[in-house]
Computed example of a mutant assay.
Amino acid sequence: MTEEKKEEFRKLLNERMEALLEEANKTVSGMTDQRENYPDPTDRASMESERNFTLRIRDRERKLIGKIKEALERLDTNTFGICESCGEDISEERLKARPVTTLCIECKKKQENEERLRGV
């Protein structure tokens, strides 16, 4: 992979991480600013349900931030874009769609088929 392409992916990964961190900060400040009291149990349950949903999304985003950091480390160690299963190059199209990926499309399909067979 050329240095120009690496920098392109580094920029993309950093932009995604900044956007995720910004959303996380909004969520935290929004939850600490909410001092609403819902006397109606239905309203309170609805608010709690929305809050739990938001927290689940933020947890997924937290995991994605970890994957982004790992992808940035792979860029630094020149292993970005190399399938960790077969050692072949991961296509640029796949990396653009999912820059945190560690598997080429063939190895990912194989992994998904194995998971499906095991019922995971």
Rank of each mutant, 00 (worst) to 15 (best):
R44A: 11
R98F: 07
F9S: 02
S29G: 06
V28N: 05
K108I: 02
D59G: 13
T101Q: 01
S29C: 08
D40Y: 06
E8C: 06
E50A: 12
T77V: 07
N52C: 05
D89C: 07
T101A: 02
E50W: 08
E48I: 02
L95D: 01
D76W: 03
E92T: 10
E84M: 12
L21S: 09
E23M: 09
R74A: 04
K96Q: 14
S29I: 15
N25H: 15
R56M: 07
L117I: 08
R60L: 05
S29K: 15
S85K: 15
I105E: 01
T27S: 08
M1G: 10
E8A: 10
V100Q: 03
F53C: 04
I65P: 02
E3M: 11
E8N: 09
P39D: 14
N113I: 09
L13S: 00
I90Q: 00
F53K: 08
T77E: 08
E3K: 11
I68E: 01
R60T: 06
C83V: 13
E115H: 02
I82K: 00
K67M: 09
R44G: 04
T54D: 07
C86W: 10
P99Y: 02
K11S: 11
K69E: 14
A19I: 10
T32F: 12
G30S: 14
E112C: 03
I105H: 02
A24E: 08
P99A: 04
S29D: 15
C86F: 09
E4I: 10
K109A: 10
E115C: 00
T27C: 07
C83G: 07
F9L: 03
L55W: 07
K26R: 15
F9E: 01
S91Q: 07
N25E: 15
D76K: 11
N78R: 13
E23R: 13
S49P: 00
C104H: 00
E93M: 07
P99H: 03
L72M: 04
N113Y: 08
A24D: 04
N25R: 15
C107I: 01
C83L: 11
E7G: 03
K11D: 08
R116L: 06
E88T: 12
S29N: 15
G87E: 06
I90K: 01
N37I: 15
E92N: 13
E88L: 12
E93D: 12
V28E: 06
T77M: 05
R35W: 09
M47N: 13
E36H: 10
G87M: 05
P39Y: 12
R62I: 04
E88K: 14
D33M: 13
K96C: 06
S29Y: 12
R118M: 09
R98A: 06
I65M: 08
E106H: 13
A45D: 10
L13K: 00
I57T: 11
E73Q: 13
G66F: 04
L64Q: 06
L20P: 01
C104D: 01
R10N: 03
V28D: 03
N113H: 10
R51E: 06
T42M: 14
E93Q: 11
L55D: 05
R35P: 00
I65C: 05
R94T: 05
R94Y: 03
E84Y: 03
E115Y: 00
L20Q: 04
E84F: 02
R58K: 14
F9D: 01
Q111L: 09
S46W: 11
I82G: 00
P41C: 11
G66H: 07
C83Q: 05
P39C: 10
L95Q: 02
V28M: 12
